[in-house]
Design a protein around this nucleic acid. Structure first.
Lengths: 127, 127
DNA sequence: CTGGATGCAAACGCTTTGCAAATAG
DNA sequence: CTATTTGCAAAGCGTTTGCATCCAG
C-alpha cells in the first residue's frame, strides 16, 4: 500500500467516524459538505482502499455497495421478505481464519458472512 | 411456497442444469434461445425465487448479481488484486447453522461466506 | 517540470417499471 | 371472465470513464 491520497484519507476518516456500512453516495454527501469533491473521486478512493484491503465491501438489498472500515467486522441476518437486517453479536467463525487450507497460498484480509432467511415478524406473512 | 410460474420453472430448470452461479443476462441469453422471454420476466422470476429462498444471490466483482440454486453452496477465496476466485472444498461453518442465537427468531435459508485477500500469484506484485 | 489525483459531465450497464397483450385458473 | 404473468420499451440509478485541470514531489 503506497501513500494514501487526500481523498483516500477523507474517505477513511469518514468511515472510521461513522463506524457503520456506508454507501458511496452517503460518503459523497458527507464529504461534499466539507470540501469540493466528485463522485468519481469517491469511487476511485473506495476502489483503491478496497484493493489494498483497508476497507470491506458489502452489498445492500437494493444492490448498491456498502463500505465499512475493516475493524467493523459485523455479520447480519437478512430477511428476504421485509429486508430488515439483524446484527449478530459475534462472528460464528471466530477470529483465527488464516489457515483455511494450508495447501492454498492465500492471505486473507477479511471475510464476509451473511445469513438469509425469514425474520420473526415475517414468519406467517404472505409473499 | 406458491405455485411457480412458467418463467420461474424455466429459470430454475436452467440453474439446476448449469449448476453454477449465473447472471441474469446469461439466463436471459440461454432462455431466449429456447422460448420468447424478456429480461424483465427473468428478473421478476429471479426475485420471486430469491424471496422464497429457492435460490441464492451473490455478487460478482463487477457488481452484477449472480444466481445459483441452493444446493450449490460453495465458498470462495477472492483475490483483491487479480480478481481470481479459488473455491473452497468445504464450508468452514459446517452445515448445522440454524441455532445461531436461540434468542433471535429467524429461519435461515442459506448463508454466504466469502474470503477476500491476496492470492499466491499476486503476493509480491505491485498494485 | 512531470506524473498522478481530482472534478465534472457524459456514458455504461444492470435492474426496475409502466402498460397493453397473453395466459392461467 | 378476472387475476396474474409476460414482453417490450423506456426509465432509473449506481458506477465507470474521458478529459482538462489541479496538485504533489
Amino acid at each position: 500500500m503506497g501513500k494514501p491520497t487526500r481523498s483516500q484519507q477523507q474517505v477513511l476518516a469518514l468511515l472510521d467516524r461513522l463506524n457503520r456500512p456506508v454507501s458511496a453516495r452517503e460518503i459523497y454527501d458527507h464529504l461534499s459538505r466539507e470540501s469540493r469533491i466528485g463522485m468519481a473521486t469517491v469511487y476511485r478512493a473506495l476502489d483503491a482502499l478496497r484493493r489494498e484491503g483497508t476497507i470491506k465491501v458489502g452489498v445492500r438489498a437494493n444492490g448498491e455497495a456498502a463500505y465499512s472500515p475493516l475493524p467493523l467486522d459485523r455479520h447480519y441476518l437478512h430477511c428476504l421478505h421485509c429486508g430488515c437486517d439483524i446484527p449478530l453479536a459475534a462472528c460464528p467463525l471466530g477470529h483465527n481464519l488464516q489457515p483455511l487450507d494450508p495447501a492454498i497460498p492465500f492471505t486473507v484480509y477479511y471475510h464476509t458472512l451473511e445469513f438469509f432467511g425469514v425474520c420473526g415478524d415475517c414468519q406467517g406473512v404472505a409473499s
